[in-house]
Write a protein that binds this DNA or RNA. Structure first.
Ligand SMILES: [Zn+2]
Ligand SMILES: [Zn+2]
Ligand SMILES: [Zn+2]
Ligand SMILES: [Zn+2]
Lengths: 134, 134
DNA sequence: ACCTTGCTGATAATGATTGTCAAAACCATT
DNA sequence: AATGGTTTTGACAATCATTATCAGCAAGGT
């Protein structure tokens, strides 16, 4: 049976309080800074659970770290992520969905899944970068 | 200045000899098994170089490992990868390219890059899986 | 051949993630 | 509210890929 613990709530809450994708380590730090004594391993476990049940999305950062996010919908969708501040925009892309399905089928592949993420600099970070570059 | 060493050639050659994406570790093992005394750190460095110069493509496996591949073209393209045997098919997707550019621009993002990969089971592996499942 | 300087490789260090396991927390039941 | 079977936790060790060190080697220009 699956039990309810304050630790799980804490992780879920911390995820919700965050706009963009966060690493397990970052989330653990954030929780600690608010006085929570939650353990690191527990944060990892809670995040893995949330990802399993579809309550959170996860992806690999370009550096290979696992990042997690609580999304507004549990429907399949993708993300546009600021590589500087982590700001994330959820995006739908029916065109990409059908394209992925087609290209897999045309090549005889089954059980196809896909990874589609766009990384960039958000408007705010772009402005900051331009200012500091002068 | 950039020097030519047999180590670099060895890594490039080993990459070429391989159909799909490989990890640095796997490539190092493969080289060792052919009697090459090349060092692990050197394999990592050579692969990073090849990826930098566009002579190799790299991506993060779903498990977070960095994988490399020598592609037939150095033009921008994506991959359809068998998650069982590693067979890789290079795919172009102009539609996806413009979509990625558009979605970034429409949200005020600059310096946009994207990660687009399709994972599945190739025809051969699908057949094998079906047979053993019976 | 000589010299300068980039390259190599054995090894240590790093850093994220997972495994361990006794103690603590849950929760249905008494 | 106390009990007991089970799950979860958390401090810490263990993994595992990747990177940093740094002294010795070698590529290329002279
Ligand atoms: Zn930003
Ligand atoms: Zn999709
Ligand atoms: Zn296959
Ligand atoms: Zn592309």
């Amino acid at each position: 049976m699956k039990r309810n613990t304050w630790q799980r709530e804490a992780v879920r809450g911390a995820l919700d309080a965050n706009d963009g994708f966060v690493s397990a380590q970052a989330l653990h730090s954030a929780l600690h800074s608010t006085g929570s004594p939650i353990g690191l391993a527990t944060v990892y476990r809670a995040l893995a659970d949330l990802a399993d049940t579809g309550d959170a999305d996860s992806l690999q950062s370009p550096e290979g770290e696992s990042l997690y996010r609580a999304c507004s919908t549990n429907d399949h969708h993708h993300h546009l992520i600021c590589r500087n501040c982590g700001l994330t925009v959820e995006i739908e892309a029916d065109a990409v969905e059908t394209w992925a399905k087609d290209v897999a089928a045309k090549n005889g592949f089954t059980a196809a899944a896909h990874v589609v993420d766009v990384f960039g600099l958000c408007a705010a970070c772009t402005a900051t970068a331009a200012a500091s570059a002068k």
